[in-house]
Structures are given as structure tokens and as C-alpha cells.
Design a protein around this nucleic acid. Structure first.
Length: 607
RNA sequence: GCUGAUAUAGCUCAGUUGGCUAGAGCACUUGAUUCGUAAUCAAGAGGUCGCGGGUUCAAGUCCCGCUAUCAGCUCCA
């Protein structure tokens, strides 16, 4: 295993075949060894993709191949084949791959001109498709192992014998070149590692992620459900989930009030004419649901902006009033394609923690900063790390370029002046304005887009919003659209996976379970339950005719943070026996001490 | 929406190449048990096999359509 499989020259990975071809002396350069480093894995996986293609070609001689790149934690290959390939066939392909590995093919390389390549692959329309993306005067590489050869820029391993630890993970369809209008090819995903331990660890990690899947936990913990008769993408919140959600709503409501936001509420359906004024009808109409009342078309809101605009217009506004901050837990409906629905992550009805800040152009920066600090407070409370990304003007957009530039600059300045790092997503903005997205990272290091801040000069223009400035003249306000959690559905889904269903105490659906040892202790449990209700703590009494052990087990499996066992001793002394799930400790304390602990836990969370 | 797959009790899953009254564990109900920190014992009830159509002497099992779900692709203001 001391073998080196490539070298690095000027930060570029050069495989041994290419080094030979270009006459590069490998001894003087940084070596890449056969291990689980990123550079090595990239080579291993790339060669594994070719090995898979070779196996597929032997099993399905009519197969034609498109591209087979390395991705985040593995590789895939897109190809066309006449037969249908299903999960069951993966084992067979893997078997063939192992057979090929045993033959220890040298992986060799030669180069030809693009013109020669066009001739060579003239009967292979998929390879011609690949060649289309390569410049006219290019020299292309062909890698060969046994009888199999493939157009490829590398880098590759020197020999197939290295490929011992791989697994094909799934077979799916994928559009040619990622283009929805083109044909669908077959795609097989796989992964490969340098060592047995590494691939084992990877597979364990996949299992771990499955255990945390919010769809599974949502079912186990009875948080939410879906129903075929109700329809896809329409979540049904069960008591446990609704308890959790209402706690989150209450905390966040207070947090908004403390920051000067006013609660408002707009209607669920609005006449289509108003969606035409806003531009939603033209730019977003295909994702909206419509209905009709007395021959007039209404659109079910996919966003809450218009209601808030009408709140703004309900009175005469002065510069002295600005900024005005209106917030609403706005229920919105969006027609998501059937294939994208996914638990609580992608649904057709959801509730945004939405707000619109109406301010003067000069106030943009300070308000953006204020929102960012709001976001920071919330995300810290849940232990989420996050990063920012600015999305610029999309192809489908309303408004003039200079307005877009001004708005984008406003966002960037706000971040720059506060020393906040951010990425840029060109063309990823909303049709009415650029945005900052907040992407949070969960316990499994997966990234999720939640909150967003958007600067909008367009809707105030279209709705002719005004305020009176300090010269007693009419001026146009700017609208900031913002959400912090994004939606309660999505955020709760992410949070569920982040904490593996062990919710922080302050929002746990059931925070305390009382277990009276015998029937004679139930009364004391009820007394305590009532007292906890007064300090907004949800508790349950587990008094079913089951053994103590069983009831402890049930409560633990429901991931309830605190268990309280009550017996003769506790009733007599007005104490409680506490079992803390997070610290795994048990101790006896007085009733008052218990309530003090609970209060501290609740007071410790201030958004 | 597209490609492929799946749908059996509240949940997790068995159910041979089509062949009697469709099974299990957990949950649920009833009875016994009244227990000091992760499963007490026994009995009972519960299913138009996702929905609609077809093939067949016979369909949970085969075929078609629809709905929903899963893995991806495309999309996500």
C-alpha cells in the first residue's frame, strides 16, 4: 500500500499515465498515495466509474455511455441501454466488476485530436454529445483497460487491481445533460474507498442518517402524518407535533414583538387582478392554485407580500413611521411537482414566519443587519451553524437593471461592512429582487436553506407605495421580505434530523412524564401536572397498568427529556425522583427545587 | 412532470411457480398483577390485501389505469 498513484504539479493532479505521456518526472513532485485522501478518492472513484462501465458493457453489449463524473461521496455513470435495469441488477454488475478487478488490467492512455475522436465515435451519439462540449482544437484522452476504452480526461489509477472496496448504491433515471427536454438515460450511483474500514464507516453513516430521517421520527414520535385521501404534500399535524410547533410559534412571536414587529394577517385568497399587478400571475402563475367566486378568478396566495402591502396602504405613512415591520405566520400554497414532495421538507401547503419591512432606501443596510442578528439569535438557540449566500437577478425578473444593481449592492454592503463572509449564486434571486439566503448546517453536516432576506424596489413601484418625507414630499419606500425559519414545516423537519428527535427541552412536545409507582400516587402526579401547567410545561402522567420498567422504557423511547418517578417516599416528603435523559442522571429533590430547575431551563432560552 | 421501484392490521413486516376461513411482533381492549428506573402474565378484538377495471374455474399474487409513497433527474420565486 506504499504505492503512489499520481502526482500533484502546480496543484493539478496528474496520473501516472499522463506523467509518462508528458514526460514529467514523478520523483520531484508531491505524490498522491493510495489512501482515503480527497485527491486519492477522486482518482479511485473515477476509475471505479470506468470499471462499472466496463462491467455494464460486458453484461449489456448494446450500452452506450454518456458521462461518469465523481461527485461528493462517490460517482455515477449515465448510459443508455435497451433493457430495464433495476436494483436487483446492481449485484450482478458488482459481481462482474469484481471479476474484472481480478484480471488486473493495466489502465493505459493515448491521445487523439477531436477530429479523430469524432470519427472514432461516429456511431455513438452519446459520445458525440460529450464531444460537442469540447473545444474544436482540443486533444482528447482515451483510457483503456482490457477491451474497454472510454473518452476521458482522467485522472485514473494505473491498474484495476486497486479497486477492491466499492459499492453500487442506486439506479435511477437522469436527463441527458440535465436537460428536462432531452431523453432520460439510466444512471447508476456508486462509491469507492481505499480501505475496507472507510467504506464500512460510510455505510454506517448512511444507516445513521436513515435513523434520523424526520419522516421516520415524525411517525415514531407521532409528530405529523400524511394521508392519501387528503392529498400529497399536505401535512397533518398530530398532537405531539402541534405542541412542539405551537411552542416554537409562541417563542418566535415574542421575539418579533421585542424587535418592533407588528402582527398582521392577510386573506388566504386574493383576486387574480392583484397577482397580475404584482407580477406573480406572469412569473409564478404556473405554481399557483386558482379558484373562482361569482365568475371572478382568485389566486390562493403563494406568498404573503400582498396582504402586507395592503396593510401598508391602509393608512397615510410618514418617514417618521419608518421602518414599519409587519409579520405574520403566513399559510401559503404552492404547486410543487409531484416528484419533489419530500416529508416536511417539500410540501404544497406550509406556514412561513414571514415579515415585510417597509423602510427608506437609506435604512436598508441597518435593517438587513438587524435581521441578520435576529437570525443569529435564533440559530444559536438551536445549535445550528450557518453561512450566507447572495442570489442575484434571475432570467425571469421584473424591474430595471439599475434597480437590481442598487438592491444587490445594498445587500452586499450590509454584509461587507459587518465583515460577514458570503457566497454568490448568480441568477438565483426572486423575480422581484435579489436575496441573502441563510444556509444552516445540521449535525450530519448537511446544508439546508432556511431563512432569506430580499430587497425589493419593484413591488413598492407596482403598488405605488408612498410615504411623506421630511420635505413634505411623496417618496417611495423599499420593501424587505424576510423569513428566519423559512417555514415551520421545513425547519421542524430539519431540527428533527439535527437532534435525532431529542428536541431541546424548551420545545419538546412532552417535557416531563410522571410515573406513579402505584395507583395511590396518581393524585400527587396530577397535583404536580397542574402546577407545571401554570409555568407552561407540558407533562403527561403514565399511569397505565404496566410495570414501572415498561413505563420508563416507553417514555425513553418517546425521547421525553425528564422522567419523574413518584412513590410513597415522594408523596410523603413532597419530593420527586428525577431522571434526566440528557445527563442520564437520577436524583431526588424537593418539589420546589424541581420547579426551579424547570424555570431555569425555560428562562435560559431567549430568542 | 420524467425514469425506476413500492403499496398486506394503527406501526414494522411474513405470505412459495395464481389454489381452502390472509399470518407474526409491537400497539389496542379485557382480566390477573400494584411493581423504585429500558419490555409481568393470560385472553380478546382488529384486514373489501391503496382505489378502479381486466385476464382466469380461481387473484394479495398476473395485466391496464388512477392515487400515494420511496430513490434519483428537472424544479424550489
Amino acid at each position: 500500500m506504499e504505492d503512489f498513484i499520481a502526482v500533484k504539479v502546480d496543484n493539478e493532479v496528474i496520473d501516472l499515465q499522463t506523467a509518462k505521456e508528458k514526460d514529467i518526472d514523478t520523483s520531484n513532485n508531491q505524490k498522491i498515495y493510495f489512501d482515503n485522501s480527497n485527491d486519492a478518492l477522486e482518482i479511485i472513484r473515477h476509475s471505479c466509474a470506468h470499471l462499472m462501465a466496463q462491467a455494464i458493457k460486458e453484461l449489456y453489449p448494446d450500452a452506450l455511455f454518456f458521462v461518469g463524473p465523481v461527485i461528493e461521496d462517490g460517482f455515477y455513470y449515465d448510459f443508455r441501454v435497451n433493457e430495464k435495469i433495476s436494483d436487483k441488477d446492481l449485484k450482478n454488475i458488482e459481481k462482474k466488476m469484481k471479476e474484472l478487478v481480478k484480471k488486473k488490467f493495466d489502465i493505459t492512455k493515448y491521445t487523439i485530436t477531436k477530429k479523430e475522436a469524432l470519427e472514432k465515435f461516429k456511431d455513438d451519439d452519446l459520445k458525440l454529445e460529450v464531444l460537442k462540449r469540447i473545444p474544436e482544437d482540443a486533444i482528447v484522452g482515451i483510457y483503456k483497460q482490457g477491451d474497454f476504452e472510454d473518452l476521458c480526461r482522467g485522472p485514473h489509477l494505473p491498474n484495476t487491481k486497486y479497486l477492491k472496496f466499492f459499492k453500487l448504491t442506486k439506479v435511477t433515471g437522469a436527463y441527458l445533460g440535465g436537460d428536462e427536454t432531452k431523453e432520460m438515460l439510466t444512471r447508476i450511483y456508486g462509491t469507492a474507498f481505499a480501505t475496507k474500514e472507510a467504506i464500512k464507516e460510510y455505510l454506517v453513516m448512511i444507516e445513521e442518517a436513515k435513523k434520523r430521517d424526520h419522516r421516520k421520527l415524525g411517525n415514531d414520535l407521532k409528530l405529523f402524518t400524511f394521508d392519501e385521501e387528503i392529498g400529497g404534500g399536505l401535512p397533518i399535524w398530530l398532537p405531539n407535533g402541534a405542541r412542539l410547533r405551537s411552542k416554537l410559534e409562541a417563542l418566535l412571536f415574542k421575539a418579533h414583538r421585542k424587535r418592533g414587529y407588528e402582527p398582521v394577517r392577510g386573506p388566504e385568497i386574493l383576486k387574480s387582478d392583484v397577482w397580475k399587478v404584482s407580477g406573480h400571475y406572469d412569473n409564478y402563475g404556473e405554481n399557483m392554485y386558482f379558484t373562482e367566486i361569482d365568475g371572478i378568478e382568485y389566486g390562493i396566495k403563494p406568498m404573503n407580500c400582498l396582504g402586507h402591502i395592503k396593510v401598508y396602504q391602509s393608512d397615510v405613512r410618514s418617514y417618521r413611521d419608518l421602518p414599519l415591520k409587519f409579520f405574520e405566520y403566513g399559510v401559503v400554497h404552492r404547486h410543487e411537482k409531484s416528484g419533489v414532495l419530500h416529508g416536511l421538507f417539500r410540501v404544497r401547503e406550509f406556514t412561513q414566519d414571514d415579515a415585510h419591512i417597509f423602510c427608506t432606501p437609506e435604512q436598508i443596510k441597518e435593517n438587513v443587519i438587524e435581521v441578520l442578528s435576529f437570525v443569529d439569535d435564533i440559530m444559536k438557540s438551536f445549535g445550528f451553524k450557518y453561512e450566507m449566500e447572495i442570489s442575484t437577478k434571475p432570467t425571469k425578473a421584473i424591474g430595471k437593471d439599475e434597480i437590481w444593481e442598487k438592491a444587490t449592492k445594498g445587500l452586499m454592503d450590509a454584509l461587507d461592512e459587518n465583515g460577514i463572509n458570503y457566497g454568490v449564486d448568480e441568477g438565483g434571486g426572486a423575480f422581484y429582487g435579489p436575496k441573502i439566503d441563510i444556509k444552516i448546517t445540521d449535525a450530519l453536516k448537511r446544508k439546508w436553506q432556511c431563512g432569506t432576506i430580499q430587497v425589493d424596489f419593484n413591488l413598492p413601484e407596482r403598488f405605488e407605495l408612498e410615504y411623506t418625507d421630511n420635505n413634505n414630499e411623496k417618496a417611495r419606500p423599499v420593501m424587505l421580505h424576510r423569513a428566519i425559519l423559512g417555514s415551520f414545516e421545513r425547519f421542524i423537519g430539519i431540527l428533527t434530523e439535527h437532534c435525532a428527535g431529542e428536541f431541546p427541552f424548551f420545545i419538546a412536545p412532552t417535557q416531563v412524564v410522571f410515573i406513579p409507582i402505584a395507583d395511590t400516587h396518581i393524585e400527587y402526579a396530577k397535583e404536580l401536572q397542574n402546577e407545571l401547567m401554570d409555568i407552561d410545561i407540558d407533562s403527561e402522567i403514565s399511569s397505565k397498568n404496566e410495570s414501572l420498567n415498561k413505563r420508563v422504557r416507553i417514555a425513553e423511547k418517546q425521547k421525553v427529556p425528564l422522567l419523574v418517578i413518584l412513590g410513597d417516599e415522594e408523596v410523603q416528603n413532597k419530593t420527586i425522583a428525577l431522571r434526566d435523559r440528557t445527563t442520564r442522571k437520577q436524583y431526588n429533590i424537593t418539589k420546589e427545587e424541581f420547579k426551579k430547575i424547570l424555570k431555569e431551563k425555560m428562562d435560559g432560552v431567549i430568542f
